[in-house]
């Protein structure tokens, strides 16, 4: 499922993402917080990715049914 290479290829897509929803365990409140926090549905996204020699795309919701560790970091070639 390698992606066709293009310098102007599609970037990350979060357009389909809805405002964070409360999970069933969280009490429903009228004014939902805008930022994500625990006990909320993780906002879905699709982004270009590199995986083991291939360019591909990764979609968070493809991992439903599995645990996910989603790790943001400041940048490649940084020191820590």
């Amino acid at each position: 499922m390698a992606e066709k290479l293009s310098c102007a290829g599609p970037g990350p897509d979060v357009k389909g993402a809805k405002a964070p929803e409360s999970a069933p365990m969280a009490e429903k409140r009228e004014a939902a917080p805008r930022c994500v926090t625990v006990a909320m549905k993780a906002p879905d996204f699709t982004a270009p990715a590199y995986l083991k020699g291939e360019f591909t795309r990764v979609t968070l919701s493809d991992h439903l049914g599995r645990w996910v560790a989603l790790c943001f970091y400041p940048g490649d070639f940084t020191f820590v």
Binding site: P12, L60, F72, P74
Partner: peptide
């Protein structure tokens, strides 16, 4: 855009800070 959605994008640095999210099989951030 993804970092912004998760509240970890710092526009003045232009990067995502270190953010680690554990998401359960229902897609809920634990």
């Amino acid at each position: 855009a993804v970092g912004t959605l998760y509240g970890v994008y710092n526009p003045s640095l232009g990067v995502n800070v270190r953010g680690r999210f554990i998401i359960d099989p229902d897609g809920v951030i634990q």
